[in-house]
Design a protein around this nucleic acid. Structure first.
Length: 831
RNA sequence: GCCGGAGUGGCGGAACGGCAGACGCAGCGGACUCAAAAUCCGCCGGGGCAACCCAUGGGAGUUCGAAUCUCCCCUUCGGCACCA
């Protein structure tokens, strides 16, 4: 619907004044609700999603940079006739609110809900087309109750489970710490005490159940390749075999290996210190050293245990036990060492020092036997005693009984088949991906809907009793312990199974749970009958375009994909991949090239810049800095260029006589102008589509510079001129929404420019019949020649031979060959 | 160590097999002005009087032609980091 123009601004205003027009149009857009998305709109849908912010209370220029690009894109999409959903909300649970509570005594809820309106205002300053009527705030019970609901569904399906997991424990504060609260590898951020990992009962989501699909479906989405690569590496699929080694004690020790062909060279075994068999197999003589090694390993920080510096110096101790190599029947020692990780494979490895770098370092450190079983072709014979590094390349099997001479890796399947036939192993695929630990010993998050009853054990809270409310009357103490642990009213519950006394789960959910499905909620944030309105979700999802920082390449995007697949299997959505197309912005750094930081005061606030230059100029400046996906250090040096461009465009409109329109009348100047207009339409449309906002702006600047030159000429009275000026304003609307609205009004057009149709490129209007192309002699540029666009090679070369200095170059030479690329160039090879 | 991305004027960048440096900033010269701001016009990679020559991190290669493709190296920014 098009409203009547009843603004008080007069067309006589001659210069651009951002401070006057921006607040005016902001009001008007709000009053007329032009950014509210109508679900009933029959146009093709387009769901543009951009990662919602944490409500810290501050939007700096980095946020502007991230949010303006998708805004420009969504605006063009809407003008191109799509029904666009472009919502926004707040990722409102999380640690900063809780830290504010602990340090300053402000309740997390107060802090969060005071920040949100401020954030909304800061958003609106940039003039985005956000539909605020669909706002989702994840700390609202109306949202987090559905986290709890989904949790219960996952519990039913065995996708949520409780298990013991290693978490950081501070012995001084008597509390669990989040990873980010552990500094320098193993020091408590709060009290400076040395912390260590401790096994506690934790909640997990079984994301590994979906590993195969999470990997394979990456091929089906239009995402930046680096993000896909990072996800693939994180999921980490490895093909190999599981092999069984008999231990002298009678137990079986299973290992996973990607190189079952080297089993003949397995000269010892290494198990993780935490491996359950260690207690059983360690003999009395070694028990003391094994125990102290395990203790030390537990205290070691992740950094100490896994850093490269330490990698060369392997540590470990002998358990006193021996295993039998299943193919050589040799007796081999079993060691424990912290380079073997309990969380991967079986937590035990067969060590083949000749063909594995880590095993070789370990063998050398403890003088263990080394046996070469793969010999590369065309290379000196490997010598176990003198080899400087392990050999991991292709070659022929050696010292391997019946397999001697078999080339690897091409005949690896034969070895696996034989091992399987002999009952010594089986093919296996192993994943690096671990299940998702979702419990947090934190207050400001979604309560996990579980109670513990002395009689019935762990009991889920019935759906009808949701939400389990987070109590707001919480006391925060400097220890950082979650107030829920000591909140009697919260803790006390009735067992849903037997009606007896029960105690509530005090852990809350990882905030990544909130962001794993929030976009579904935007389609109908008030839906009461379930987390997701089935009709709306069918209408709007999957998301057509998702934008955000590459820092979320792995966790958030992987969890979101996992949740979508779970919701699909629950029958709530009809697709498994949430985001069809993903684009990442680069990061805007502080001027020094470092990350913008609040504490160092290097965050740049947009507000003074808006006051001085206007939001439109700042929007353009940010988009003009360089390729959006690249980012870079902030500087405000170039912003005056954007001011000049806007001022010039404004002047073109101000000087345009809306009353006079004469037909082009076949003038060449008018035809030339139409060519330029349509070429610019093509460039701008394509650049926005491809996220090339910097070159999109360059095209508009070129266009306006040309129009400025033509302003005083006769062509400025033609239809072609009006088409050019109107197109300029329409194409500026996504990038500079305020001034475009003003200019549209000055042209006497109906409100709102943002509800107009995007100009359409007409190729026929850009056609030319003469073209100037370069002439090269032996690949070096010498002249330019104007020829017909559709000139034949003979005609083109003939014209080139006589142009300018070309005859001099050809004199006394023989033309050996000519190359003519129509529309591009002519190259004459002479000798 | 492994996996990705990026190296182009004083600066941000454009071109991504075919006229290197679009567009913008800064700078220089000029117009307007009592003056300044704003605006407008011109110049603006290096060398050379010029014809021309050199130039896209360095080196090789493919091609009529390479900033662009291939290989090696250097620098830099991300990610993973003993994953068997």
């Amino acid at each position: 619907m098009v409203a009547q123009d009843n603004s008080t601004t007069t067309v006589s205003q001659r210069t651009w004044d951002a401070a006057a027009i921006e607040p005016k149009w902001r009001e008007r857009w709000k009053d007329t609700a032009i950014y509210a998305t109508d679900d009933a709109d029959p146009n093709p849908k387009w769901f543009s999603l951009t990662m919602y912010p944490y409500p810290s209370g501050i939007l700096h220029v980095g946020h502007w940079y991230a949010y303006i690009a998708p805004d420009i894109f969504a605006r063009m999409k809407r003008m191109q006739g799509n029904n666009v959903l472009y919502p926004m909300g707040f990722d409102a649970f999380g640690l900063p609110a809780e830290n504010a509570a602990i340090r300053n005594g402000i309740h997390p809820a107060t802090w969060t809900y005071d920040n949100i309106p401020e954030m909304r205002e800061q958003f609106d300053l940039m003039g985005p087309m956000i539909d605020w009527s669909r706002e989702v705030v994840t700390s609202d019970p109306s949202y987090y109750r559905w986290n709890q609901w989904i949790f219960l569904k996952m519990l039913e399906r065995g996708l949520a489970y409780r298990s013991s997991g290693a978490v950081w424990w501070c012995p001084n504060d008597q509390t669990v710490l989040a990873n980010e609260q552990v500094i320098d590898g193993n020091v408590c951020e709060r009290c400076g005490a040395e912390v260590y990992k401790r096994d506690l009962e934790q909640w997990f989501f079984r994301i590994t159940e979906y590993a195969e699909e999470l990997l394979s479906e990456l091929d089906s989405v239009d995402w930046p390749e680096p993000v896909k690569v990072m996800q693939r590496n994180w999921i980490g699929r490895s093909e190999g075999a599981r092999l069984t080694f008999r231990i002298e004690t009678g137990d079986d020790l299973e290992v996973f290996t990607t190189r079952p062909d080297t089993v003949f060279g397995a000269t010892f075994m290494v198990v993780a210190p935490e491996h359950p068999l260690v207690d059983i197999i360690t003999n009395d003589a070694q028990r003391n050293v094994v125990e102290s090694y395990r203790d030390a390993a537990r205290r070691k920080s992740e950094i100490e245990r896994q850093s490269t510096d330490e990698a060369l110096q392997k540590t470990g101790v002998f358990t006193g036990a021996y295993a039998i190599n299943p193919v050589t029947d040799e007796k081999i020692q079993i060691w424990i060492a912290d380079y073997v990780l309990m969380g991967y494979g079986t937590g035990a490895v067969m060590a083949v020092p000749a063909h594995d770098e880590r095993d070789l370092a370990f063998a050398r450190a403890f003088d263990l036997p080394i046996k070469v079983v793969i010999q590369p072709d065309d290379a000196p014979t490997l010598n176990a005693d003198t080899m400087a590094e392990s050999y991991v390349g292709p070659g022929r099997m050696l010292n391997s009984g019946r397999f001697d001479g078999t080339p690897m890796p091409e005949r690896l399947p034969e070895v696996i088949a034989w091992l399987e036939q002999e009952g010594r192993g089986a093919p296996e695929v192993t994943w690096r991906l671990r299940d998702w630990l979702i419990s947090r010993q934190r207050y400001w998050g979604t309560p996990i809907p579980i109670v513990y009853c002395d009689d019935c054990g762990m009991v889920p809270v019935p759906e009808a009793d949701l939400p389990v409310m987070l109590p707001l009357d919480a006391e925060f103490t400097p220890t950082g312990q979650s107030p829920l642990v000591s909140h009697e009213a919260f803790l006390k519950a009735t067992c849903p199974a037997c009606g007896g006394e029960a105690r509530r789960e005090t852990d809350t959910m990882d905030t990544f749970v909130d962001s794993s499905w929030y976009w579904f909620r935007f389609t109908n944030p008030n839906y009461e009958a379930g987390p997701i309105d089935p009709e709306r979700v069918k209408q709007w999802t999957p998301v057509d375009l998702y934008t955000g920082g590459i820092e979320h390449a792995i966790l958030h995007l992987l969890y979101a994909r996992f949740f979508t697949k779970v919701l699909r299997d629950l029958g709530l959505v009809d697709h498994g991949e949430p985001f069809r197309k993903l684009r990442n912005q680069g990061m805007i750094l502080a001027a020094e090239g470092t990350k913008m930081s609040k504490s160092r005061g290097t965050q740049i606030s947009p507000n003074p810049l808006v006051e001085r230059y206007g939001a439109d100029a700042l929007r353009l400046h940010l988009m003009f800095l360089g390729p959006w996906e690249q980012g870079g250090p902030w500087n405000d040096r170039g912003i005056t260029g954007m001011e000049r461009f806007i001022r010039r465009a404004f002047q073109i409109v101000a000087d345009t006589d809306t009353g006079s329109r004469v037909a082009d009348g076949g003038s060449e100047a008018a035809a030339e102008l139409r060519r330029l207009t349509h070429k610019t339409i093509a460039r701008v449309s394509k650049d926005i589509e491809q996220f090339h906002f910097n070159t999109m702006i360059a095209a508009l600047i070129e266009f306006s510079n040309e129009l400025t030159k033509l302003k005083g000429t006769d062509v400025a009275k033609t239809e072609a001129w009006h088409e050019a000026v109107e197109s300029l304003v329409l194409m500026m609307a996504p990038g500079t929404p305020y001034v475009a609205e003003e200019m549209w009004q000055m042209l006497g057009k109906p409100y709102s420019v943002h509800q107009q149709r995007w100009p359409v490129y007409d190729e026929a209007l850009t056609a030319v019949d003469q073209i100037e192309i370069p002439v090269q002699i032996n690949g070096k540029l010498r002249e330019r020649v104007t020829i017909a666009v559709d000139a034949t090679e003979d005609d083109a070369v003939a014209a080139a031979q006589v142009v300018g200095k070309i005859p001099e170059y050809l004199e006394g030479k023989i033309i050996r060959r000519t190359i003519y690329v129509p529309g591009r160039l002519i190259n004459i090879l002479v000798g």
